[in-house]
């Protein structure tokens, strides 16, 4: 069983969580003034890296809170998790065993 460390509940089983796609994607302040290309970029274009990826996760069968996680897309290892609204930590620092 893969354990994910919820910033509020601690380590909990993977089945309690759901992934919400890439993190740190800001919606343009005024979409009407955004070019079609930039809007398409916001809607559809993702980094999809091979390696450490910042993602949004929700502990929906637990505390119900959203948080961010750095996950290695190759090994499926969670590097760290952190609260929404905080900046992306340096990859590899503050390592969480998962």
């Amino acid at each position: 069983m893969l354990l994910i460390r919820c910033p509020y509940c601690g380590e909990r089983p993977e089945v309690e969580f759901h992934c919400g796609g890439e993190a740190h994607i800001a919606r343009p302040e005024t979409p009407t003034e955004t070019s079609d290309a930039d809007w398409a970029g916001f809607l559809y274009y993702r980094t999809n890296p091979r390696g450490v990826h910042a993602e949004r996760w929700v502990h929906n069968h637990g505390c119900g809170r959203w948080f961010n996680a750095l996950r290695d897309t190759v090994s499926d290892r969670f590097v760290t998790t952190y609260e929404m609204g905080t900046p992306r930590p340096e990859a590899g620092s503050d390592v969480t065993r998962a």
Binding site: V15, E16, G62
Partner: peptide, 19 residues
């Protein structure tokens, strides 16, 4: 429920939403 129910991680008085 795949949650850890050992007294160390889920002591008397613990309460949580889970599956």
């Amino acid at each position: 429920a795949p949650i850890d129910l050992s007294l160390r991680s889920f002591p008397v008085g613990a309460a949580t939403r889970t599956i």
